[in-house]
Nucleic acid binder design. Structure first.
Lengths: 142, 142
DNA sequence: TCCTACAATAGACATTGTCTAAGTCAAGAA
DNA sequence: TTCTTGACTTAGACAATGTCTATTGTAGGA
């Protein structure tokens, strides 16, 4: 199965049916493309394991985020979305109309764009870049 | 008073006590620096106009966003924050510990970083850049 | 001053996320 | 294999944020 499960097992993660299902949902089903919300992860997980609770999904997603296996994305102030593609630095292209997210991989380090004089004493460790616009479908519809 | 109120009046915005107070809260009190949440705007507005309702604050903020006078910022998936500095392009420096936001103004157009081959047919109109790290206070505390 | 359409209000409702107490189970020990 | 224990899961209450509706109020023009 997935590298993800192997890595987690190797880190002493206690393997339960619930955690396995959540990890599998994030790992498969094209989840890497759509960046599911917690609720969507729960719905898909419940398809395989009907008695799984919302709290467990939230807990597990939170752990995956702490472990650095998944990135939390807040693109719209509504539900957070979970991006399993955490090991490859990338940015997001978001459609302002339908909300679809597409990963992009521009060259260069975006952190370099912020000179020290503009950091005001902050220890900057991460940059999040989100491009907003219309996806091809929404652009033709409009 | 503010340019903001003048612009709104000029656009046919019906001027009520509630709208005036919300606009003034966003315009003063150092609100431009802290980027208030809707709830904080309501609290400050209620300081001047105790009977103002939450719904009115939400409505007014929503209108200001539609009018392009205020930008909605979703930095953490919790409450949205409202940035009145909409007419000057800028980016945000966010402390991952205490949540404080600081505006920064790097040179250059961040949109230029995304080549056409990485746009996948999207009509990109806007870029949001958020630098995350620790503010000086939180860095020394940690 | 009076009208009317737009705005504000209270409060119910919806969505997303967190917490708690109690029961369950994975995985190492014997 | 069976036992033990602490980590994991569960249901459901709770919290935070945001939206909607029906009713009442009022800005601004006639």
């Amino acid at each position: 199965m997935s590298d993800l499960l192997e890595r987690l097992r190797g880190r002493g993660w206690r393997m339960t049916a619930q955690r396995r299902v959540v990890a599998e949902v994030l790992d498969g089903d094209g989840a890497a493309h759509v960046h599911l919300t917690a609720d969507e992860v729960h719905a898909r997980a419940a398809g395989r394991l009907p008695e799984i609770s919302r709290a467990t999904v939230y807990n597990t997603l939170g752990e995956l985020v702490s472990l650095g296996e998944v990135i939390e994305v807040a693109t719209d102030g509504r539900a957070k979305r979970y991006d399993p593609n955490a090991h490859q630095p990338h940015q997001h292209l978001v459609c302002s109309r339908c909300g679809v997210i597409r990963d992009v991989h521009p060259a260069g380090d975006p952190l370099a764009a912020l000179p020290a004089t503009e950091r005001f004493g902050f220890t900057v460790s991460d940059v999040e870049v989100t491009y907003r616009g219309l996806c091809p479908d929404c652009a033709t519809a409009a």
